[in-house]
Design a protein around this nucleic acid. Structure first.
Length: 589
DNA sequence: GCCGTTTTCGGCCCGACTGTTTTCAGTCG
C-alpha cells in the first residue's frame, strides 16, 4: 500500500508550517510549493518513483534533491523521520488548529508553549476560560475571534457547494452595481475559477471618486445578511454572512480593474508565477497594475492594468481563462499559444440525462421537453431509472416499451406545435453488481442512447468495482457511463475505482463518460476530465434533471468541463443531433 | 530548499488589515 499524493502534500505543507514556527527563512515556501505541486499531479508520485526513481521525482517542479529523498522515504516506509522530529517539538494537531481563522504557525507554537494547547478542544477551553486574552500579543478581541471561528468550524466543513455560493455572490454583485459612483463589478476568487467547492466570496468593485469608496464599504458592511464584520477599510472589507459564508470586498480605481481582477481571481500559485514573469522583465505586478521599475527602484512607470488581457499580453502570454488558472501547466501552454479553446457556456445543444415522472422525476416527458426547448436546447434524452431502482419507480421492460410510444406521441405533438426539440429514447440503466445491465440487451437495442449507472454495492474492492464498470462499457448496448465515480460532494466518497483503466476501456470501446452537472456530483471531476481529453475519450455534460428548473445546472457541468480543459469537440452534446448520434455506439451500428 | 534567456550562488511576490502595539508581527489572500 503506497502513499497517496494528497498525503505527501499534507505532510509537506505541515513541514512548511513547522519551519515557519521556527522562523526559518525561505524553506517554508519551498515545502509549501512542493505540497501544492504534488497535490496537483495527475500521476501518483509513487508511480513516478517506481518508473524513474529519484531522478524522475526531481523532474517535478519544486522538488529538488532533498525533497525527492523525503518522498522516497515516504513511499518506502510510509513515514518521514524529518517530519516526525519537527512534529515532536510541537506536537499539535495542525490540521485542526490551522483551520481557525487568524491562527497561523507562530501563534500556534506560542499557544502550545504557554498553555499547552494541542488541538481544537484545548483551544476552545482556554478561550472560554479567558486564558488567551492574558497572553502577550493577544487580547480580548483575539479570544472572541477564536471562539467564533471554532463555532463555525463545528457547524460546517468550511466549504460550500459552487451553486449555493454563486447565487449569493451574484445577488450581492447586483446590489453593488446599482450604487452611485460604482463602475465595474466582478465576482473573483475561486468562484470565478468555478471550483467545485468554495471557501468564500470575493467581489471586486471599481469606483470613480473617493467618497464612493467609503460608501461602497459602508453599504457592504451593513447588508442585511452580514452577521460579523472582520475588517472594514477603504480598499478591503471582510464580513461573515448569515449563511456562515465569508465575503470579501475589494475596491480599486478603474485604471487597475484588470490587474485587480487578475490578482483577486488567483489562484495564488498562478499569481506568484505571473509576478515572477514580471520580475524577469524587471517589472512589478500587483493588484494596481503592471509597472516598470525605474532607476534605483525609485520611479515607477505604469505599463498595463486596465484589462487582464493586456497584462497577459505584456507578460508574453495569451489570455488564460479563469477556470484554467490553477498552475497545472496553463502558463507554459499560454507561452506556447497551445491553450485549448474551451467549450463555451452557450455551446450545448442537447441534454442527455433527463428524468421524468415515469420514475423519480417531478414532471412529464412533455413538460421536460418544453422546458428544455425554452432554453434553446435542440434535443434531450429521456433517461428514467431501470427496474432495480424500485425506490425511484424504476421502469421494467413493459413500462419502457410504453414510454417509447409516449415519446413518439410527444415528438408528434411538438412537430405540429412548431417546437424544434427532439426527444430521444434512453435509459439510466442500473449496472448490476457483476457488471451486467438491469434491462435485457434486446430492449436496450431499441433505445437511441443507453446510459449505465452504479447505484448499489459501493463498497466493492477496487478491482471488482473497476471490472464491473469495464464489463458494462464492453457491452455494445451501453453508450454512456453516468456519474462514473459516484461521489457526492461533502457527503459521500467516490467508490474505489481504477480511473485510468476506466478511461482506457472507455477509449477502446467508444464509451462516453459523463460530466454530471448536478452541483453536489460534478462527476467526473476536473482532473479526470483532463485525462479523458488527453486520452481522446468523448464526454457528455448532462444535467440529471429531475424537474423543469434543473436544466440551469448545466452551467456548473460546463464550468467543470472547462476546468478539465475540454473543448467543444470533446463534448458530444455540443454537437448537432445527427453528428452527436454518430459519436455513440448506437449511432454507429 | 529550490532554481537559473543575465546567476551553480544569491536570490526568493506583495500589499492590506488587525490587534496590541509606540513601530510592528502575524495572518491572509
Amino acid at each position: 500500500m503506497s502513499i497517496k499524493n494528497d498525503e505527501i502534500a499534507r505532510i509537506f505543507s505541515e513541514i512548511g508550517d513547522y519551519l515557519e514556527m521556527q522562523g526559518v527563512a525561505f524553506k517554508p515556501r519551498a515545502y509549501q510549493r512542493a505540497a501544492v505541486v504534488i497535490a496537483g499531479l495527475t500521476e501518483e508520485a509513487a508511480d513516478i518513483y517506481k518508473k524513474g526513481g529519484l531522478r524522475a521525482l526531481e523532474e517535478i517542479p519544486g522538488v529538488g534533491a532533498s525533497i525527492a529523498e523525503k518522498i522516497e522515504e515516504l513511499i518506502k516506509t510510509g513515514r518521514l523521520g524529518y517530519y516526525q522530529n519537527l512534529k515532536n517539538k510541537v506536537p499539535v494537531k495542525l490540521s485542526e488548529l490551522r483551520a481557525v481563522e487568524g491562527l497561523g504557525p507562530r501563534h500556534i507554537k506560542f499557544l502550545y508553549q504557554k498553555l499547552g494547547i494541542k488541538n481544537l478542544q484545548d483551544l476552545e477551553e482556554a478561550a472560554e476560560q479567558g486564558k488567551i486574552r492574558k497572553l502577550v500579543g493577544f487580547g480580548t478581541k483575539s479570544e472572541e475571534k477564536i471562539l467564533k471561528s471554532i463555532q463555525f468550524l463545528k457547524k460546517s466543513g468550511g466549504r460550500f457547494l459552487l451553486n449555493e455560493v454563486l447565487t449569493q455572490a451574484r445577488e450581492i454583485e447586483e446590489r453593488l452595481k446599482r450604487l452611485p459612483g460604482v463602475g465595474k463589478t466582478a465576482i473573483a476568487g475561486s468562484l470565478r475559477r468555478r471550483k467545485e467547492t468554495i471557501g468564500d466570496i470575493d467581489i471586486l468593485v471599481t469606483v470613480s471618486t473617493k467618497s464612493a469608496t467609503n460608501k461602497v464599504a459602508d453599504f457592504f458592511a451593513s447588508m442585511p445578511e452580514v452577521v460579523t464584520i472582520f475588517a472594514k477599510g477603504p480598499t478591503k472589507s471582510m464580513v461573515k454572512l448569515k449563511s456562515s459564508l465569508d465575503a470579501d470586498l475589494r475596491v480599486v480605481p478603474e485604471k487597475s480593474y484588470g490587474a485587480a481582477l487578475s490578482y483577486f481571481t488567483g489562484s495564488k500559485e498562478h499569481n506568484v508565477c505571473l509576478r515572477e514573469l514580471a520580475i524577469k522583465k524587471s517589472w512589478k505586478l500587483n493588484e494596481y497594475g503592471l509597472f516598470a521599475v525605474g532607476g534605483r527602484g525609485k520611479t515607477e512607470r505604469w505599463l498595463a492594468g486596465r484589462t487582464e488581457e493586456e497584462i497577459y499580453q505584456k507578460l508574453g502570454l495569451v489570455y488564460i481563462e479563469p477556470e484554467l488558472r490553477e498552475m497545472t501547466g496553463e502558463i507554459e501552454a499560454a507561452q506556447a499559444d497551445q491553450l485549448p479553446k474551451l467549450i463555451g457556456y452557450n455551446d450545448l445543444r442537447g441534454d442527455l440525462q433527463v428524468q421524468t415522472n415515469w420514475s423519480d422525476g417531478q414532471h412529464s416527458i412533455e413538460a421536460m421537453g418544453r422546458a428544455a426547448a425554452a432554453l434553446g436546447l435542440e434535443y434531450i434524452l429521456i433517461t428514467d431509472h431501470s427496474q432495480r431502482l424500485a425506490m425511484a419507480h424504476g421502469l421494467d421492460e413493459k413500462r419502457v416499451l410504453e414510454q417509447l410510444k409516449e415519446i413518439d406521441r410527444v415528438n408528434d405533438r411538438f412537430k405540429k406545435a412548431g417546437i424544434k426539440l427532439v426527444i430521444l429514447k434512453g435509459s439510466e440503466c442500473d449496472i448490476l453488481k457483476d457488471g451486467r445491465m438491469d434491462l435485457p440487451d434486446q430492449l436496450l437495442a431499441k433505445l437511441d442512447i443507453v446510459g449505465g449507472s452504479i447505484h448499489s454495492h459501493f463498497k466493492l474492492s477496487r478491482s471488482e468495482q473497476t471490472e464491473r464498470l469495464v464489463r458494462a462499457m464492453t457491452n455494445p448496448q451501453v453508450d454512456i457511463i453516468f456519474h462514473p465515480t459516484g461521489r457526492l460532494i461533502n457527503r459521500r466518497e467516490p467508490y474505489d475505482l481504477d480511473i485510468d483503466r476506466v478511461i482506457e476501456v472507455a477509449k477502446a470501446t467508444g464509451t462516453v463518460l459523463e460530466v454530471n452537472a448536478f452541483p453536489d456530483r460534478l462527476d467526473l471531476k476536473d482532473e479526470h476530465i483532463r485525462r479523458c481529453v488527453a486520452a481522446g475519450v468523448k464526454l457528455v455534460v448532462s444535467s440529471d434533471s429531475h424537474s423543469t428548473n434543473h436544466f440551469s445546472v448545466l452551467e456548473y457541468g460546463l464550468a467543470q468541463a472547462r476546468r478539465g480543459w475540454a473543448e467543444k469537440s470533446n463534448v458530444i452534446n455540443a454537437w448537432p443531433l445527427e453528428k452527436m448520434k454518430s459519436m455513440i455506439k448506437h449511432g454507429r451500428r
